[in-house]
């Protein structure tokens, strides 16, 4: 518990945490609402976003949960990954892991505290995204004299779960990369390369080679995209509809657990030189 409280204190007071959360909120607002609303008002729907009515439907409170989940498999995930990789990797350069591991807690507790604190930040990010997206949806509905028809409670809970699972998986991958590379720069570079470039390239190759396509569905980004797709949050880069919701959820949860466990195992086993 002490390790968790310590990590949470320093993450909450870290400007990078709030800068990255802020960047994500601006992105989700801009790409989820501002551009769609401008396109709707200007009557320009030529970019493939569907008819004006479809655009308006996407921006309504009933669809707000989908708007949150839609952006997470690729861009939101990348931001969370960067945050986690920086949070863990920087400690090797600053020498704070040395201070942490000589303070008293078991190594497994120290890493557990870090994972739990990063997880808490992920929960905050997801919750703020819901607040911002629902706020934007309600504002647009008010401005356009549309009804405030809200999604069902179960649907919102499912959306929170999907968003938390996807963001949590990318955060665990960031922690894993931070530990394995023992630094922030390589961890962030490798993470971004994987989440934004490598999986997309593999999907391109998958269009030519069937077996590669099968593999891409179950890679971390593919699994996250399929979970978003199964929730109905389609129409964004990285969102797929190849797997069932249960399969995709299990895959994402599995990746989250594997990344966290390897990070913990390495922290316990390796010398800190």
């Amino acid at each position: 518990m002490g390790s968790y409280r310590a990590e949470l204190l320093r993450l909450v007071k870290w400007p990078a945490t709030w800068v990255l959360i802020g960047v994500w909120l601006v992105m989700t607002l801009t790409f989820g609402y501002v551009f769609n609303y401008v396109a709707y008002k200007s009557g320009d729907t030529s970019r493939g976003g569907g008819s004006g009515a479809q655009l308006m439907a996407q921006m309504m409170p009933a669809e707000a949960a989908e708007a949150v989940v839609r952006g997470l498999p690729m861009f939101g995930g990348a931001i969370v990954l960067v945050l986690a990789a920086l949070a863990v990797g920087s400690g090797y350069g600053w020498g704070t892991w040395k201070t942490t591991l000589t303070a008293g807690p078991r190594r497994i507790s120290a890493m557990g505290g870090t994972l739990a604190a990063v997880g808490t930040i992920v929960v905050v990010l997801v919750a703020l995204t819901f607040v911002v997206d629902f706020g934007a949806a309600l504002s647009i509905a008010t401005m356009e004299n549309q009804s405030w028809s809200m999604p069902s409670f179960d649907h919102v809970v499912q959306g929170l779960g999907a968003a938390g699972l996807i963001a949590g998986m990318w955060a665990a991958m960031g922690v894993f990369l931070g530990v394995i590379t023992r630094g922030p720069a390589l961890a962030v570079g490798l993470g971004l390369l994987w989440s934004i470039v490598a999986e997309n390239l593999l999907r391109g190759v998958g269009a030519l080679l069937g077996p590669v396509a099968d593999v891409t569905k179950v890679l971390p980004g593919g699994a996250a995209g399929n979970l978003a797709g199964a929730f109905g949050a389609t129409g964004a880069p990285g969102v797929l509809t190849d797997l069932s919701g249960v399969t995709a959820s299990l895959l994402v949860a599995g990746y989250l657990a594997v990344f966290a466990l390897i990070a913990a195992w390495l922290t316990v086993r390796r010398d800190l030189v």
Binding site: G2, A6, L9, R10, G95, A103, G104
Partner: peptide, 29 residues
């Protein structure tokens, strides 16, 4: 039961001296 300072202090650069110690204090209860 040990206090240590190994090869220079390792602290978070963005935190104040006091907050760094508060983080350390939480780990040591």
């Amino acid at each position: 039961r040990i206090g240590s300072l190994i090869e220079g202090p390792g602290f978070f650069p963005y935190l104040s001296g006091r907050d760094n110690l508060r983080v350390h204090a939480r780990r040591r209860d």
